[in-house]
């Protein structure tokens, strides 16, 4: 297993252009995220104070759900078009390849959500002083979601219409990031939430890639 940078950056670039060319890569999660956020005032009433108070937490929920919209395709496409076979035999660590693909996927489908959060926060009346530190949390939590979601997606890569299955597998793994993330939104950067969120992200960075690698080898079999 060599870990030279060229295969990783190639995998990264291929995943970026694939997600970009897929068209829906960028817009689908954004639309879903914004749409979910739009439903919040309708479902919870027009109490401005309530919306402002629960806004950051509700955004976490929307983020968690939106992160799952495109997960199904991350590895399934590679399995179906045969690229996965080639990656596994490339002699490079499939775990690292999977991690760099996941990161590319987050850049295309996850980061835009983070950038959109202040706008939705503004719509819900959340004070901007709260939203900015919360954005850091959304970014870190988003990566964590994509990593665990990636494990679920890799495990379910060989399953047709795996969307719901991926959600059922991944949701329990989302719990820590959501809890820590909401703490960050509540307490700002000085609270106990940020180090915990950072730790859970690092933990996901360490554990999820090998699990994705093993799952992808299985999917290719």
């Amino acid at each position: 297993m060599k870990a030279s940078p060229a295969p990783l950056s190639s995998a990264f670039r291929q995943a970026l252009s694939e997600a970009w060319a897929g068209g829906s890569g960028l817009l689908l999660p954004l639309g879903f995220f914004a749409g979910t956020a739009m439903l919040i005032p309708f479902s919870l009433g027009s109490d401005a104070e309530l919306l402002a108070r629960i806004g950051p937490g509700v955004l976490w929920l929307a983020l968690a759900l939106a992160s799952m919209v495109t997960l199904e395709r991350v590895f399934q496409a590679d399995l179906q078009d045969g690229a996965l076979d080639l990656w596994i035999q490339s002699g490079d660590s499939i775990s690292l390849i999977a991690a760099s693909k996941t990161f590319a996927h987050w850049l295309i489908s996850g980061l835009p959500l983070v950038i959109l959060t202040p706008a939705i926060g503004y719509m819900l009346g959340v004070p901007m002083s709260e939203m900015l530190p919360a954005m850091l949390g959304y970014a870190m939590g988003g990566i964590t979601f994509f990593l665990w979601g990636g494990v679920a997606a890799a495990l379910a890569a060989s399953v047709a219409r795996a969307g719901l299955l991926i959600a059922v597998i991944a949701l329990p793994f989302y719990v820590p990031a959501i809890i820590f993330g909401v703490r960050v939104a509540e307490e700002g950067l000085n609270g106990v939430g940020l180090p915990f969120l950072g730790a859970s992200m690092l933990f996901a960075l360490g554990v999820a890639p090998p699990a994705m690698g093993a799952a992808l080898r299985l999917a290719a079999e």
């Binding site: 060229a6 295969p7 190639s10 995998a11 670039r13 291929q14 252009s17 694939e18 970009w20 060319a21 897929g22 496409a77 179906q80 078009d81 045969g82 690229a83 076979d85 080639l86 490339s90 490079d92």
Partner: peptide, 21 residues
């Protein structure tokens, strides 16, 4: 039996990609 091609790739970018890898 699958080709390993992505829908958005051209023959040139596909071969370049794997040459790099």
């Amino acid at each position: 039996h699958t080709n390993g091609l992505k829908a958005h790739e051209t023959p040139r970018t596909h071969l370049k990609h794997w040459a790099r890898v």
